[in-house]
Design a protein around this nucleic acid. Structure first.
Length: 219
DNA sequence: GCGACAG
DNA sequence: ATCTTGTCGC
């Protein structure tokens, strides 16, 4: 991978923020014009000081699971809003090394561009795996938005300091929306289209939902 | 100073 | 994220 991960335990929050600001300069919200073939969804679960990361790979068109990979490791950092990537990426990257498949896009459970420094976990991860990424969060971290219509498919944009940073998407009728944002190497249209493609009958799009289901059953 | 705050 | 039963609503 292009970037080496600096272990979080010998870093202070200030140093982590410095790294985020540096990486943020390299974010490219460019359009991904191909139709994805294989995509992966990532989710983690924790117990005590151990974390489990699961990567589920699906066929984009068939919406079928074709591979499940995971890794377990000790966690060294507590959850700190804005610094989630430093807590979860080390374990994810361990699982990523086990992956024998090359997905076209990788979805994360959390924010992408919709972050104080535009470096949510999905965006941050892209610099290590060098793949387009998208963030699907169950709640927002920052920003303001108008409530989207109550029907599935309706959406509004999330803004921060007058800049569009994400999409508030209704994936089911009368159910709280999810917060979608491009991670890196995809644009807002891609993030919305690709995520909505996985909005079947549940609030959480199938790609991340499947990962979450495996994360629970594997422990 | 106060409120907000991904997982 | 995690700890957890019943319960309201489509």
């Amino acid at each position: 991978m292009k970037y080496k991960f600096v272990h979080s335990f010998d870093m202070s929050p200030k140093e982590m923020i410095k790294i985020q600001k540096q990486l943020a300069k390299e974010v490219k919200l460019s359009h991904f014009s191909d139709v994805p073939n294989l995509v992966s969804g990532v989710d983690l679960s924790f117990q005590e000081d151990e974390g489990l990361a699961v990567i589920v790979t699906m066929d984009f068109k068939k919406l079928s699971v074709i591979d499940v990979t995971y890794a377990v490791d000790k966690v060294t950092l507590p959850y700190i809003p804005g610094l989630l990537a430093f807590r979860e990426l080390p374990i994810f990257l361990k699982a990523w090394e086990e992956l024998e498949i090359e997905p076209d896009i990788v979805f994360f459970d959390g924010q992408g561009y919709a972050h104080p420094r535009r470096m949510g976990i999905a965006t941050h991860a892209s610099f290590f795996i060098e793949k387009p990424t998208i963030g699907i969060a169950k709640s927002k971290l920052i920003g303001k938005y108008e409530e989207p219509g109550k029907k599935k498919g309706e959406f509004t944009f999330l803004y921060h300091k007058d800049e569009k940073i994400g999409i508030v998407l209704r994936t089911r009728d009368n159910v709280k929306p999810v917060f979608v944002s491009p991670g890196n190497l995809v644009d807002f249209d891609n993030a919305l289209d690709f995520t909505y493609h996985f909005a079947t009958k549940y609030k959480i799009p199938e790609i991340t939902r499947k990962a979450h289901l495996y994360t629970k059953s594997l422990k």
